[in-house]
Computed example of a mutant assay.
Amino acid sequence: MSHATSRRGLLFGGAAVGATALLAACTSNEPAEAKEEKTDAAPAAEESGKHVTIGFAGPQADHGWLNAINVQADERAKKYSDITFEKTEGSNDTATQIGQIDTLINKKVDVLVILPADGKALTQAGLKAMRAGIPVVNLDRIFDTPQAYRCWVGGDNYGMGLNAGHWIGEQLKDKKNAKVIELAGTDSLELTRQRTKGFDDALKNYPNIRKVARQAAEFTVESGQAKMAQLLQAQKSFDACWNHDDDQGVGALQAIEQAGRDGFILVGGAGARSAMDHIKADDGVLKATVLYPPTMAASAIDLARALGQGKGISGLSETEIPTQLSLYSAVVDKDNIDQYLSSGFK
Rank of each mutant, 00 (worst) to 15 (best):
L162I: 01
A275F: 00
G185W: 10
T192S: 14
V267Q: 04
K211A: 00
R210G: 10
K204A: 10
I265K: 04
L183F: 05
A226L: 13
R193N: 15
K211V: 04
I181S: 06
A202L: 04
L162V: 01
N205V: 02
G169M: 03
H244E: 04
Q230R: 15
N163M: 07
A259D: 14
A275G: 01
E218N: 15
H278C: 01
H278Q: 05
A272D: 08
T220C: 14
N243I: 12
D200R: 15
V250T: 14
A240P: 04
K236L: 13
S274H: 12
D201M: 01
F199P: 03
G155E: 10
A255K: 11
C241S: 10
W152L: 04
E218A: 15
R273W: 12
E190A: 08
L253C: 15
K280I: 00
A202C: 10
K236C: 12
W167Q: 00
C241N: 11
Q233R: 11
G185I: 07
K175A: 09
I181E: 01
D262Q: 14
R214S: 14
E257S: 15
A178V: 02
A272T: 08
S237R: 07
Q233H: 11
Q194G: 01
M160H: 14
Q225V: 05
H278N: 00
A217T: 13
N177E: 06
F264H: 00
T192G: 10
V212G: 04
A213K: 15
N163D: 02
K211F: 07
G224D: 06
V180W: 02
G269S: 03
F199L: 10
K179G: 06
H244V: 09
G260W: 06
V212T: 15
H244C: 11
F199C: 00
T192W: 01
I279Q: 05
G271F: 01
E222M: 14
L162N: 13
V212M: 04
D187S: 13
L266K: 12
R210W: 02
G260L: 10
L191S: 06
N163C: 04
A240M: 02
M276Y: 01
G161V: 05
A255V: 08
N205Y: 08
F264W: 06
E170N: 13
K211R: 13
K173M: 02
Q233F: 12
Q258F: 11
N243Y: 06
G165I: 00
E257N: 13
A216M: 09
R214I: 14
L232R: 14
C241K: 04
Q254R: 13
D239S: 09
T192H: 06
C151S: 09
K236M: 12
N177V: 00
Q194I: 01
N208P: 00
D174V: 02
A216C: 13
I279M: 00
G269D: 00
N177W: 04
K176R: 05
Q254I: 06
A234L: 11
D187W: 11
A213P: 08
Q233L: 12
H166W: 12
I168R: 03
K280H: 09
D277A: 05
T220L: 14
M160L: 06
A259V: 08
G251R: 11
R214D: 04
I279K: 08
R210E: 15
D200Q: 10
R193S: 09
S223I: 07
D245R: 05
K280F: 04
L266D: 07
L231W: 03
